[in-house]
């Protein structure tokens, strides 16, 4: 088999994954695009392992390791996404713009002001920074 077939397919899959990571708004869709990129790398590893006829089979061993790490990554990533969703009520990457959790003492008795308050405070902070 010509080596260009798997190599070109891996490159195109990787580019599709790059597009997905940059264009998607939902965190879980971003994670799915990351999986596509990891799979493109896996295809490269397998193809080059078969091409080089490596006695250690480094390519296939690394593919297995990558698959395992990807599984661990998506498990931890989804746990973090669920935590963010529970505290912020959103799974959109462009709405989570600040690091850290809210201070508990700040929030007493201000339950129902919600997202407008948040955005106004963000805008005020940006103006102060500028």
């Amino acid at each position: 088999m010509h080596l260009a077939y798997p190599a070109v397919l891996a490159v195109l899959l990787f580019s599709v994954g790059v597009y997905g990571v940059l264009a998607r708004r939902n965190v879980i869709l971003v994670l799915m695009s990351v999986e596509l990129m990891l799979n493109a790398v896996n295809l490269n590893l397998v193809a080059f392992d078969v091409w080089l006829r490596d006695t250690l089979h480094a390519g296939q061993a690394l593919t297995l390791f990558t698959i395992t790490i990807a599984a661990a990554e998506i498990g931890l990533g989804l746990a973090i996404v669920l935590l963010v969703y529970r505290t912020r009520r959103t799974a959109a990457v462009d709405e989570v713009t600040a690091l850290g959790d809210r201070h508990e003492a700040d929030g007493q008795g201000a339950d129902d002001q919600g997202a407008d308050d948040h955005e106004a405070a963000d805008a005020a902070k940006e103006q102060a920074a500028a």
């Binding site: 529970r86 505290t87 912020r88 009520r89 600040a98 690091l99 850290g100 959790d101 809210r102 201070h103 508990e104 003492a105 700040d106 929030g107 007493q108 201000a110 339950d111 002001q113 919600g114 308050d117 948040h118 405070a121 963000d122 902070k125």
Partner: peptide, 14 residues
Amino acid sequence: PRAGKLRTAPTKPK
């Protein structure tokens, strides 16, 4: 929520 430095959102999560 754990105590953090984020002061931009003075609301408690619902």
